[in-house]
Simulated assay, not measured.
Amino acid sequence: MTTYPTEKCSILIVDDIEENLIALEALLGPLGQELVRAHSGEEALKAMLRQDFAVVLLDVLMPGMDGFETAANIKRLDQTKDVPIILLTGAEVETDYAYRGYSIGAADFLTKPFDPWLLRTKVSIFLDLHRKNRQLAAQAEQLRRLFAEARTAPAPAPRGRAASAEAEATAERREKGARGKGPRPPETSPRTATAPTEERLAEIGGQLAQIELLLRDTNAAEAPTLADRVAELERAVGSLRLRSE
């Protein structure tokens, strides 16, 4: 299977208080990722439309557009709806905060002051998921290219003794046809000869469609299983390509 280097991911941190942003940067710095600041919900939405983020850390209590409204707007946009959101709240929160957050699609809650180990662990989970999803998408794209090449590849020519026997049979059919001795034996049509390959292509195409469908709804538990399925399809298309060369 193709291997991919571990790449940096982008993390969006949203808080209207500068000191809180500085604290988050200090806590998340050891992860070695790109940290992007936003001081308001409006600024966060603009940032998310400009680039791809693995996870968003979003303060709930902000003036103007608060964290709940910002999260709801993020989930409404097709471009950003799948980005996980961790809501950040103070020690004194209302009892319905968790319900409100999960109801609009937040992935998790963290209460200030943050435990550094817990914060980095939760964020790391979403970073790993983001990388796996990107690898799966890249592998699916590679499968599509191989699948297209296999469909347009010419049928394999006979080799060795099989090629000689085919050549002799063809010459004999032509000679008999020229002398008018009996009906010309039926020749195997290219469609019949390549039927097994076409069936295999159809099978792989159907499995690839299932992978692409599952990729749109993948979660942390499904990612390893999907990776195995994509690897299996990649081997299948690769072997098909080798047989057609």
Rank of each mutant, 00 (worst) to 15 (best):
K8I: 15
S10L: 00
I11L: 00
L12G: 04
I13E: 02
V14Y: 04
V14R: 03
D15K: 05
I22G: 00
I22S: 01
E25C: 02
E25L: 04
E25Q: 07
A26C: 11
L31N: 00
G32V: 12
R37N: 05
S40Y: 02
S40H: 04
S40V: 01
G41R: 00
R50Q: 15
F53L: 00
V55M: 01
V60P: 02
M62W: 01
G64M: 05
G64N: 05
M65H: 09
A72H: 07
A72M: 07
K75A: 03
D78P: 13
T80F: 01
K81E: 01
P84W: 00
I85L: 03
I86V: 05
L87N: 01
A91R: 11
V93Q: 15
D96T: 09
A98I: 03
A98K: 05
R100P: 09
G101H: 00
I104A: 07
L110R: 06
F114N: 03
D115L: 00
S124I: 02
L129E: 02
R134G: 05
L136E: 10
R144Y: 10
E149V: 04
T152A: 12
A157T: 08
R159D: 11
G160Y: 07
A162Q: 14
S164N: 10
A165D: 14
T170H: 13
R173D: 12
R173V: 14
G177D: 12
K181F: 14
R184K: 12
E187A: 15
S189D: 13
A193K: 09
T194K: 02
P196M: 12
R200W: 11
E203R: 06
G205F: 03
G206V: 06
A209R: 01
N219I: 06
N219L: 05
A221T: 08
A221S: 13
A231V: 03
A231S: 09
E232P: 03
G238L: 04
R243K: 14
